[in-house]
C-alpha cells in the first residue's frame, strides 16, 4: 500500500560535490589549449615509389607517363616537361592541366634544388588532377 504522496518523491534533492570534477576539467582544458597552440598542424603528399603495373595492358598504359624534371639552373629552380621549362609553379601547373592524366606523372628531382621545389612539383601534379604521382629518386 502506497501511503506517501507521489509529489513528495519528486522533491528529493541529490547533492553532489562537483568541485573536484570542475578542477580536473579546467586542468584538461588548459592542457589541451596549450598543446594545440604549440603543436603545428601537418598535411602530407603521397607519391608512389614503385611503378604500378597492376593495370598493364589497358589503353592508358600504352601511353608514356608525363615526366617533370626538377633541376637547378643558374641558381634558380626550373621545372621541365620535355623541352619546355618553367620558372614559376603557376606556369608548371597550367602546363600540367593540359596534359592527359591517364598515364600518371613522374617527378624526377636532380641533385641541387631544395626539398621545397620537389614538394611543389608533386603538389602541382596533384592539383592538376593526376591521381598517380610517382617520385623517381635519382641515384647519385
Amino acid at each position: 500500500m502506497r501511503l506517501a504522496p507521489r509529489h513528495r518523491e519528486g522533491n528529493r534533492r541529490v547533492v553532489l560535490s562537483m568541485s573536484s570534477m570542475i578542477d580536473v576539467t579546467f586542468l584538461l582544458l588548459a592542457y589541451f589549449l596549450l598543446t594545440t597552440i604549440v603543436s603545428q598542424r601537418e598535411d602530407q603528399l603521397s607519391p608512389n615509389l614503385a611503378i604500378d603495373r597492376s593495370s598493364a595492358g589497358t589503353s592508358e598504359q600504352d601511353l608514356e607517363p608525363q615526366i617533370v624534371e626538377v633541376a637547378l639552373r643558374d641558381g634558380e629552380v626550373v621545372w621541365s616537361i620535355g623541352a619546355r621549362s618553367f620558372s614559376t609553379r603557376d606556369d608548371l601547373l597550367a602546363a600540367l592541366r593540359d596534359l592527359p592524366k591517364g598515364p600518371g606523372l613522374f617527378v624526377r628531382v636532380l641533385d641541387g634544388p631544395t626539398v621545397a621545389a620537389a614538394a611543389a612539383a608533386i603538389q602541382c601534379g596533384r592539383d592538376a588532377g593526376f591521381k598517380e604521382v610517382t617520385y623517381v629518386p635519382v641515384d647519385d
Binding site: L49, G112, T114, V115, A118, A119, P137, D140
Partner: peptide, 14 residues
Amino acid sequence: ADRNAPTAALNRVL
C-alpha cells in the same frame, strides 16, 4: 624533410 634540405638527401632516403 626540411624545406631547405638538399634533394640529394631526400633522394638517398627514398
